[in-house]
């Protein structure tokens, strides 16, 4: 029983964590909370199913096509919903523009795909629905792979350091001659691909369903707030903890009460540590 709850909790937690990382990557490059993060997760599942099951593309090329399309949609987010409002960040217009773009994506998927959940292909074929089933550990593997790749990118490559420079102080970075706009677009492409990975790896569990976008937007934001905005490690720990806690609440109290329990804990944590469990307290200029 415990293994079943842990397996599904960690799996769904890994998906929340990856969506949290998607939020963070977009935020670091632009100081914008883009509410398309969850839709990118949804698209990972829908596009994976469309390429592999409907169009008959083999699994690996299907994965590449899915990630490339999600990366392109990430770039489109930057061009359509983020860039036009960057000059007025203090008015928070990005909330409206990114939400509108996210809703547009969701409605288009509903129209051209389906409003009912559609099947996602078995990727490897390990397990028969129990805790050892691939649908539970694939999201964890994907999460670990993304963390590894991001660590390598940010710490071992020159381009990665440029991303960090932009995230730290984009005025100073521009003054040093870094191509801020190109780096921001690249960040959105990476974020799109990470969202796509989250949806693809969890497709067997979440299915290819247009309504997943809203849920992932919502629950993917919780680890960001819990872990501290822009803090990927915090998002990973927060996401995994959220998933396990949510599934435990489903077992202990169930149904709508589980949602209440999750948000009660979320509010308590934010009251105790407003900057998030892993975020640093904001420095005060004196």
């Amino acid at each position: 029983m415990l293994s079943a709850i842990l397996a599904s909790g960690l799996a769904i937690g890994a998906v929340y964590a990856l969506i949290g990382v998607t939020y963070n990557v977009m935020f670091s490059a632009s100081r914008v909370m883009s509410f398309t993060a969850g839709q990118l997760g949804m698209l990972g599942g829908v596009l994976g199913s469309a390429f592999i099951l409907r169009m008959g593309v083999p699994i690996l090329p299907g994965l590449v096509l899915t990630l490339a399309t999600c990366a392109a949609i990430g770039v489109a987010t930057e061009i359509v919903a983020v860039r036009p409002v960057l000059n007025s960040l203090e008015q928070h217009l990005y909330v409206l523009s990114t939400l509108a773009f996210a809703l547009m994506i969701q409605q288009l998927v509903a129209i051209f795909w389906s409003t009912e959940p559609q099947p996602f292909p078995r990727l490897i074929g390990i397990g028969s629905g129990g805790p050892e089933d691939e649908k539970f550990w694939l999201p964890l593997v994907a999460c670990a792979a993304v963390v590894g790749c991001l660590e390598f990118l940010y710490r071992r490559t020159l381009v990665g350091r440029a991303f960090l420079a932009i995230a730290e102080d984009n005025f100073a970075a521009r003054a040093l001659g870094l191509p801020e706009r190109d780096l921001r677009m690249a960040s959105y492409a990476i974020a799109g691909a990470i969202g796509g990975v989250a949806g693809f790896a969890s497709g067997e569990m979440l299915l290819a369903f247009f309504a997943n976008g809203g849920i992932l937007n919502f629950y993917g934001f919780v680890p960001v707030a819990l872990g501290g905005l822009g803090n990927n490690r915090g998002a990973i720990v927060g996401g995994l903890a959220l998933g396990v806690f949510q599934q435990a609440a489903n077992f202990l109290v169930g149904g709508v009460f589980a949602g209440v329990a999750v948000f009660a804990v979320f509010i308590v944590v934010l009251l105790a540590a407003p900057q998030g469990l892993f975020g640093a307290a904001p420095a005060r200029r004196v």
């Binding site: 979440l206 599934q247 077992f251 169930g254 149904g255 709508v256 949602g259």
Partner: peptide
């Protein structure tokens, strides 16, 4: 007796409650 969110990714915990 109870309701489950139709979009819940895995209903195993709820089914375990019913079985138990």
């Amino acid at each position: 007796d109870g309701v489950i969110d139709a979009t819940q990714a895995d209903v195993t915990p709820d089914m375990l409650r019913m079985k138990n």
